[in-house]
Design a binder for these strands. Sequence first.
DNA 1: GTCACTTGTA
Length: 619
Amino acid sequence: MTTFSLNSTLRAHLNKGRPREALAYFLESQKEGLRPDRFTIPALIKLYLQLKESPLHGQQIHGFAIRSSCVGDLVVGTGLVEMYLKYGCFDEAYRLFDEIPKRDVISFSTMICGFSQNGRDAEALHFFSRMLEEGIEPNRITIASLLSSCAHLKEVKSGRMLHGYCFTSGLLDTADVVLQTALVDMYSKCRKMACAKSVFDRMTERNLVSWNSIINGYFFDGSFEAALGLFKDMVSHNLYQLRLSILATVLNICGLTTDLRKGKEMHGYILKHVYDNNNLDFLVVYNSILNMYVKSGSIEYATSLFGKMPRKNVVTWTILIACYGQYGMSAKALQLLDEMKRLGVRPDGVTFVSVLSACSHGGLVNEGREIYNSMERDYCIVPEMMHFVCMVDLYGRSGLLEEAHEFINMMPVEPDKATWLTLLSSCKNHRNLELGEHAARKALELDRYNTNVYLHLSRLYADAGRWESLAKTRSVMKELGLKPETACSWVEAKGIVHRFTVGDCSLKGVCPQIYDLLESVRKAMKVSGFVSDTSCVSHKMKEDDKVIDLCSHTEKLALAFALMKGGNLLRIGKNLRVCTDCHRTFKFVSATYNKEIILKDPNRYHRFSQGFCSCCDFW
DNA sequence: GTCACTTGTA
């Protein structure tokens, strides 16, 4: 064996998607004492990225590169940079990037893409200016990554400029699905649907991602009809296999639609097309539909479909378990786990995520711990990061912050940023400033650009009355170009989604009744002895003003609107977690106005009825 | 003979 033959064999295996064979061959070559060269290193990097190995192996490869003294090689350097970016080691990536003597488009694009894929979008755009300063021309790949960052940041202005660049540089002269899709997605995310549609219409070739982007765009823009219409086009062209992702989007739409009329219509539509298309796996499609009923907040339909399904697999069971968990019906979730065991269906790792988070949302600490311990013992499932995070959440949500922290310290692997963020979020809910600050520090060490860390931290400082620290945190966010997501709630009425954003003063003029209604609800609550929970307000202001501030919460505006609209079942969606004061108000309204209310937040569902919530005030 | 790209989802 020579190094040359080693390299070509490695490449051959990798190109055919056989990383294990490549690895075996490489290990063989090591036994023979063969030295990797600058052509071997990139192949090794590809190999390890394909195998999803731990950073330790990455460092080994780095070691090989150092020993073969080819770190300064353009291709090797770029490969190493990519590797570290994939592992989230940004400092190392920066360092290596700076060591590349003559950087090219690819090395710059690698950096930009790495930032963009890790949610560090401001940094991605920043790096682009550096690229231009060094006089390097971007290409289609650079632009696609940048567009993705503009989409995340909702930066239409930069997005438009990039679009303009595509025109003038001739990048759009030839059909380029990826680039065009990136444009569609950028416009979609920035809610410029007319622009998105015009790019989409001009595409000569489209793929699943293109459809996904445009349909999602219409969805978030509230144009349900347009989104569903496009979905029908897509299905009836029979172009792509129905996948959960796209179904989830479409069926989510139905979740917001009155009385599930649209959801059921789509259910029928999809089944018809599944029937027409023998390539599709019925079970998968049924699972998607089941998921739709769960997502749309219709437990009744979900359980009834579950009962009727002729075949079920782990996924089917897991969906329903997750459903109960999200509604705070933890006991039911555990019951389902038992039943599935009894019927001989083997739970998998994802099932345990659902079960553990059900325990977490229901405050069942002991049960959760027992189940966690049984994973490896009874099911031969080795817990991984996602399970660790569930456990931290299990302890933390219940206020057992020390246990949560201890669990992190005992974890067999280095905690990732999600772990620390989970602990931080619990510290925020239970107002433990000291531990919260520690968790925030750890999370920021791993990702300085994580908006949520700063938001949780701000909240902690506000609750503790540490106004200087609060101001400081906010100014850091500003410096880094991080913007919190603006709170938003929505209600559907007659096929149109009405959106309510925070401090939406325009409403005052257009719809004074909303504020009048809220005012009367507030008075009625006061009479009944309900006290506003002003602890939800994180600004420094007088108590009375805090009460007024609370009234502008978007879910309250949406609630008032939904009440005015009429009907006995009100469905409200929200992009952020509900606050305690709003939760109280919803309970009150469900009792005094005799309404059933479903409030969906990003993590779970609250179902209010007769003054109670399905979450039992634990969320 | 070698490096980089778009969506969603928990």
